[in-house]
Nucleic acid binder design. Sequence first.
DNA 1: TGTACATGTAATTTATATTTTACATTAAGT
DNA 2: ACTTAATGTAAAATATAAATTACATGTACA
Lengths: 68, 68
Amino acid sequence: MKNTVKLARIKANLTQQQLADKVGITRQTVSLIEKGKYNPSLKLCLQICYAVHAKLDEIFWIEQEEFE
Amino acid sequence: MKNTVKLARIKANLTQQQLADKVGITRQTVSLIEKGKYNPSLKLCLQICYAVHAKLDEIFWIEQEEFE
DNA sequence: TGTACATGTAATTTATATTTTACATTAAGT
DNA sequence: ACTTAATGTAAAATATAAATTACATGTACA
């Protein structure tokens, strides 16, 4: 699950730990999501969006051609 | 997890079963997602988007104020 | 009537996201 | 050198999404 969470997080000036705290998940989960190794739930995606002031498509959209 | 999947599905002229087949999930899962009783994975959200020709924010975005 | 389609939903099982605990690496500051 | 913050990652446990099976309702249509 490729995404731009890392970029958005840095733009929001947050460490993985700070983002994790804001969202209420663990730092490990943030790390794995940024690395594209997880398929996060919609709820989590939305919470990340709120934390970094972005919308879903900015961070999580993947064109169908490059999906999987 | 409120969303507009049902609307988008009907606009795309698909039954729950047809959408389920396109996405590769069961009809029950589609029903439960439409009813907001599931918290679908990002992968599933994207596949639904592709099937109904929409983007994530059109179907799954929830403003923070009305989140949960 | 009766049959088929579309949908809602419940119980159980299975797959997998996420947590927890833990250890490693790198870079910055002392 | 030493410490600390930030990050990557692995193994085992837990939580939960999703599948499976099954049954119920309403509607349209013969």
